[in-house]
Each structure stands twice: as C-alpha cells, then as structure tokens.
C-alpha cells in the first residue's frame, strides 16, 4: 500500500468518508442528470411522468374491471372496494420496477464514452438510473395518497412509514437486479431484449391486475401447488405488502416481511458479486 488510510477522528471526518465511500456526490449528480435531461425539449415535460400511470390505470381499469369483471378484494379492515385504488397501489411500484430495470440495463452501454475515458466506480451508473426513477415513484406515491384521500375518502397516511420501508427495500432489491442486468448487457446485448420480453409476463404473474386469491390453490404442477409456485416470484410479496398497507390498511404479515428481506439481501449481494466480477473488462467490451 502506498499510503495508510487516514484514521477518522471526528464525526465529521467519518461522515465525509462514508459520503465518499458511497459516492453520494456522484450519485446525486448522475441522478440529477437523468431527471433533468429526461424531459428537456419536450413541451409537456414532467406532465408525461403523470400521464403515463394515468393512462395505464384508465386502460387497465376498463379492460380488467369493466370488460373482464375482475373484482377487487374488499379492504380488510378498511372496507374499501375500488379497483382503481386496488390497481394503483401495486401498479406504481411495478412501473418503477419496469422502468428502472429497462433504463439501468442500458446505463453502462449507453455511457460507453464515459466508461472508456474516465475511471469512476461503475456501479453508480445503474444505481443512479434506479435512483432517478425512485424519486419519480416517491412523487407518484405522494400524489396517489392525496388523490385517494380526496376522491375515495380513503386515508392511508398513517401507513406512510410502512410504505416507505417497503419502498426502501424495493429500491435495494431493484439496485441488485439493475447491477446484474447492466453488467451482463455489456457482454451480451441480448439482455436488454430479453428483459423487454420477460417483463410483460412477469407483470401478469404478479398480483397487480387481480387479487392473489384468484390464483388456484388446489391445482398442482409437478406436485407443487400453483399458489406456492406463484409465490416464488419475489414481486408477489411486495405487491401483497403494498396492498396490505395502502388498500387494506393492515400491517403485512411476518412471512411477507421475511420473504421481502431475504429477497432483498440475496439479490443485492448477488448483484454486487456479479457486477464486481464483470467490472474489470467493461471498458474493453462496452
């Protein structure tokens, strides 16, 4: 080692080191870049990020609630029965999932000139792509809470801490996935196409448009119940937990929390592992 690292002395020192270690300044700047540049030179600008979920909820409500007559569960204990709210509390986190992964996948390949010219920790690229989307989700969720309070008389504000915890865990989970797909996409551009194909069925295999109890419990595939297989999808736990907190106004069950925490830890750890392994030759392959 050329020089021994400085021993942190004051809390300020330690904070500075932590900030440096987590690349906070770089993350903030790259996230702001994503957000600022996203709607530059578009007439409607930020309206687009509101329009997107709005259109989705109208179309999905029409198709699934009106045409296909899917009944939302009755909120227990909230007593709420509204397909739009039922849908939105899971749809918004799902759209965060989709857009984060889509944008993160290309985050390294799209920044090729940067990667080959400047050294900086590469993990900040997919991470900031996810963070930019996460800030959008925060705004969307806040708007949603106000809207359902005003329109439906449904007050979920007391559950904000629970929702924020769920969102924070989902953020980490998504970062883990983003690290994997972004690094893999440098070596195989198939990943971005594969993701486009995989995300649509993934949505239909997650209880967003319909309640979980519509998945049959009594039928089996290779001796395993449909419902059990179905729940191997970690997004099921998040969807259910979001719906518990915001629609039912109920604390998600311990099993849900356990599944969520395990999924988060595993995916984040594997994500960093994979990224570390693929990082060294990125500048050559990008």
């Amino acid at each position: 080692m050329p020089a021994s690292p400085r021993v942190p002395r004051t809390p300020r020192d330690m904070l500075d080191r932590l900030v440096g270690r987590l690349q906070i300044d770089l993350l903030v700047n790259l996230t702001l870049r994503d957000l600022r540049s996203k709607y530059k030179r578009s007439a409607l600008g930020w309206t687009w990020s509101v329009l997107n979920p709005l259109v989705a909820v109208v179309v999905y409500s029409a198709v699934f609630s009106v045409f296909l007559r899917i009944q939302p569960t009755t909120g227990d204990p909230s007593g709420l029965r509204s397909y739009a709210v039922f849908l939105l509390v899971t749809l918004l986190p799902w759209q965060f999932h989709v857009t984060s992964l889509t944008e993160a996948t290309r985050s390294i390949t799209a920044n090729g000139p940067l990667i080959t010219k400047i050294w900086f920790p590469r993990w900040v690229l997919p991470t900031s792509a996810v963070l930019a989307r996460f800030l959008t989700l925060l705004v969307e969720m806040a708007v949603l809470l106000v809207l359902i309070a005003v329109l439906e008389g449904h007050f979920a504000f007391a559950w904000i801490p629970v929702v924020l915890t769920l969102m924070a865990l989902q953020l980490l989970f998504t970062v883990g996935l983003a690290l994997m797909v972004s690094a893999a996409n440098v070596y195989f551009r198939d990943v971005q196409h594969f993701l486009g194909v995989a995300l649509a069925p993934w949505m239909f295999l997650t209880p967003i448009l319909y309640p979980l109890n519509m998945v049959p419990e009594d039928r089996e595939f290779l001796g395993i119940g449909y419902r059990t297989l179905y729940q191997l999808n970690p997004m099921v736990s998040w969807a259910k937990a979001y719906r518990n907190a915001l629609y039912d106004l109920r604390f998600p069950s311990a099993e849900r929390w356990l599944a969520i925490v395990i999924a988060t830890v595993v995916v984040l750890a594997v994500g960093f592992r994979v990224f570390r392994g693929l990082e060294p030759r990125m500048a050559e392959e990008v």
């Binding site: 900030v19 770089l26 790259l30 702001l32 940067l114 400047i118 900086f120």
Partner: peptide, 13 residues
C-alpha cells in the same frame, strides 16, 4: 450543471 456532473465524475465533492 455539467461542471458539477463532470467534477463529481472526476472525484470532486
């Protein structure tokens, strides 16, 4: 904005 961005990439706080 680019000064701050580029600076951060180069390792500035």
């Amino acid at each position: 904005e680019n000064v701050y961005l580029n600076g951060a990439i180069l390792g500035f706080t």
